[in-house]
Amino acid sequence: MTIPSSASQREESFLTWYTRAAASDTHDVYFIGSTSKDSFWRLVVELRDWLTDDHVDSFLALLRRHQAYRQSTVSQRWTTTHTFFGGHIEMAWKSWQTTPIDEFEFSGLFTRMVDATYTSGLLYKPWGMVDQVFIPINFENAHWVAGIIDFREWTITVYNSEVSYSENIETLEQRMRPYMTFIPSLLEATSGLR
């Protein structure tokens, strides 16, 4: 396969693929949120706008699907969360901090994600069966970063493409504090703790 070199050739190549994509492809790629390839790609290609939760969740769903259907060639020791997971951690963390630990109840949203009982068709894996969990994290409703929980090392690594969101280590630690403190308690409260 030859990669087109000029911008016009790349655009022509994309448009050829885009216009020929079968309608049946829609359910595989765009089944979370967006209902058509037009609405899904319009923001990215035509408007060059912010990626929505739908874009990120659809990409993560494609990764999980690739993992499920290529078990002999793709590692089976990882899973992802949905984009809402990170946002809900930040909200629940505030309540978790002020509630006695023996009185705090983790919402079903969290326990179903950790136990992979959220929605079977989305191919999530129970956290107790994986080494890593990839979490999309949205900083200040303005920037996506990738968080990776590594259960072998008991670390959370943040991958970030924009320096301004991580150049100050204290600010980054403050943004990640809900994840660093809330997730261990969530694992202890569910079957996610091995």
Results as ranks from 00 to 15, higher is better:
residue 43 L to G: 00
residue 134 F to P: 02
residue 110 F to E: 00
residue 171 T to M: 10
residue 50 W to F: 11
residue 189 A to L: 08
residue 72 S to E: 15
residue 75 S to E: 07
residue 78 W to Q: 06
residue 133 V to H: 01
residue 150 D to W: 08
residue 93 W to L: 03
residue 42 R to Y: 14
residue 162 E to H: 13
residue 181 T to C: 11
residue 116 A to M: 03
residue 63 L to I: 10
residue 117 T to K: 10
residue 175 R to N: 14
residue 57 D to M: 02
residue 4 P to G: 02
residue 127 W to R: 02
residue 152 R to P: 03
residue 71 Q to H: 06
residue 96 W to Q: 05
residue 48 R to V: 04
residue 51 L to H: 13
residue 49 D to E: 12
residue 56 V to W: 01
residue 58 S to Y: 00
residue 162 E to P: 06
residue 139 F to C: 08
residue 47 L to K: 15
residue 134 F to R: 11
residue 12 E to V: 05
residue 128 G to C: 12
residue 100 P to C: 02
residue 122 L to S: 05
residue 133 V to A: 05
residue 154 W to R: 12
residue 136 P to K: 01
residue 109 L to I: 09
residue 181 T to V: 12
residue 42 R to P: 00
residue 29 V to Q: 08
residue 53 D to A: 07
residue 135 I to K: 01
residue 165 Y to W: 15
residue 50 W to P: 00
residue 24 S to D: 15
residue 190 T to W: 04
residue 101 I to M: 02
residue 158 V to I: 15
residue 49 D to H: 13
residue 139 F to K: 09
residue 164 S to M: 14
residue 74 V to F: 06
residue 134 F to C: 12
residue 118 Y to F: 15
residue 66 H to T: 13
residue 181 T to I: 08
residue 73 T to G: 03
residue 157 T to W: 01
residue 189 A to V: 04
residue 60 L to N: 01
residue 183 I to S: 03
residue 140 E to C: 10
residue 138 N to Q: 14
residue 24 S to A: 15
residue 176 M to D: 09
residue 152 R to S: 09
residue 190 T to R: 07
residue 169 I to C: 04
residue 104 F to N: 06
residue 63 L to E: 06
residue 4 P to Y: 07
